[in-house]
Simulated assay, not measured.
Amino acid sequence: MLGFVLALLVTSGIRGQNFFRTAIFSPNLIGGLVLGYIWKFIFVQSLPSIGAKMGIDLFRLGWLGDEHLAFWALVIVTIWQSAGYMMIIFIAGLTSVPKDIIEAATIDGANAWRRLINMIIPMMIPSFVVTIFLTLKNAFMVYDINFSLTEGGHSTAR
C-alpha cells in the first residue's frame, strides 16, 4: 500500500520526482546485513539519545531489547527497504493505464478520487498481484535483517 501511495506521489508531476524516485528506491539496493546494522545503530544509539533530549518516552526505550518493540522494529525496516521496489512496480502499472480513458472520465465529470477508485485501481490489479507475491516471498527471507538487528533473539542493548 505504501508503495502505491509513493508511486502516486512521484507520478503526479511534482518537482524533483526523479530525485524522489531514486531516494525512495535506494534502500532496496542495500544488502540485508548492512541494512540491519545501520538500523541497529538507529534503534540502539540514535533513537534513545533523541528520545532523551526531546523527552519522548517511546524513543528512549531500547527497541531491540523488548520483544514487542523488536517486532515493530523489524516491520519498520522491512517496509522501509521494500517500499521503493514496490513503488517501481506500481509506477510501471500507472504508466500503463491508458491516458485516453482517464481523459474521457475527466470530461464526463469524474473527480480525481472517482478516477482513482473506478478507473486506475482496477487497471492496476496485475501490479497489485505481483507486489503481493513479492511481499510474501520477501516475508520468508527476513533472516538476515532479523539476525543483524536482534542477533537471533531480543538484544540486551537498552
Score class of each variant (00 low, 15 high):
1 M>R: 06
1 M>V: 02
7 A>C: 06
9 L>V: 06
9 L>A: 08
11 T>V: 03
11 T>P: 02
11 T>Y: 03
11 T>W: 03
16 G>I: 01
17 Q>N: 11
17 Q>D: 12
19 F>W: 07
20 F>H: 04
24 I>R: 01
26 S>F: 08
29 L>E: 00
29 L>K: 00
31 G>E: 10
32 G>S: 14
35 L>C: 04
35 L>P: 00
37 Y>T: 10
38 I>R: 00
40 K>G: 09
40 K>R: 15
42 I>A: 06
44 V>K: 06
44 V>Q: 08
46 S>D: 03
46 S>M: 11
47 L>Q: 03
49 S>E: 13
50 I>R: 03
51 G>V: 07
53 K>I: 14
55 G>I: 09
61 L>Q: 15
63 W>L: 07
69 L>G: 09
70 A>E: 15
73 A>N: 05
74 L>T: 08
75 V>D: 13
75 V>C: 14
76 I>S: 12
76 I>D: 04
78 T>L: 12
82 S>R: 05
84 G>L: 01
88 I>V: 12
88 I>C: 01
89 I>A: 01
93 G>F: 02
95 T>H: 10
96 S>M: 09
98 P>S: 11
100 D>R: 14
105 A>Y: 01
106 T>I: 08
108 D>Y: 05
110 A>S: 13
110 A>L: 11
111 N>A: 06
113 W>E: 06
115 R>G: 07
118 N>T: 06
120 I>A: 03
129 V>H: 02
136 L>N: 01
139 A>R: 07
152 G>N: 14
153 G>M: 13
154 H>F: 15
